[in-house]
Design a protein around this nucleic acid. Structure first.
Length: 160
DNA sequence: GCCAACGTTGGC
DNA sequence: GCCAACGTTGGC
């Protein structure tokens, strides 16, 4: 059974449009440097899982699309790249510290599901994203939350 | 193991 | 640009 996730991205760095333009509308979700998020990527995110694509640092912040996991956790190549901002000289190649997954765009939402709107929506009271001080960039989402967010985004029926 | 200092995230 | 919340670092 598939799970659901929310991935945050600053559109100034990598936004939905960048994903739309990526070959096969697929990208490597690398650069995650937080241990809790790493654990999700390494241990829990699986092929076929659904992803809410979220624009942070945006006005207003919003879920703007859905994606699907097409490759489960594997060592993040950028940690071994000297020139990459995420280069981690302390990560042993034999036991990599950081992980990435691949995701493929499913669809852009008909309209963004904006953060202030999410805050007022019944059924989302427990959503991790809405918790004060929640900075986690990879978050689990329940099936109910997934369905509600997609409905707000104008996605009718199905998996989005 | 404690905790102050520091850096980052991200909403506003 | 501001600042609250959080994570990490490093001295002790």
């Amino acid at each position: 059974m598939s799970r659901y996730w929310l991935f945050k991205s600053d559109p100034a760095t990598f936004g939905l449009e960048d994903l739309e333009r990526s070959p096969g509308r697929t990208t490597c979700w690398d650069g995650v440097r937080n241990y809790q998020a790493r654990n999700f990527l390494r241990d829990d995110v699986r092929v076929g899982d659904g992803v809410l694509f979220y624009h942070s640092q945006s006005r207003p912040p919003a879920v703007v699309g859905t994606a699907e996991v097409v490759r489960a956790g594997y060592p993040d190549p950028t940690q071994f790249d000297r020139r990459d901002p995420g280069h981690d000289p302390g990560s042993p190649p034999g036991d990599p510290r950081w992980y990435a997954v691949d995701i493929r765009l499913r669809k852009r939402l008909a309209r963004p599901a904006e953060l202030p709107e999410l805050r007022g929506t019944p059924g989302l009271e427990e959503m991790l994203l809405l918790r004060k001080g929640s900075r986690l960039s990879i978050q689990p989402v329940t099936a109910g939350e997934w369905r509600i967010v997609l409905r707000l985004g104008g996605v009718r029926g199905g998996l989005g």
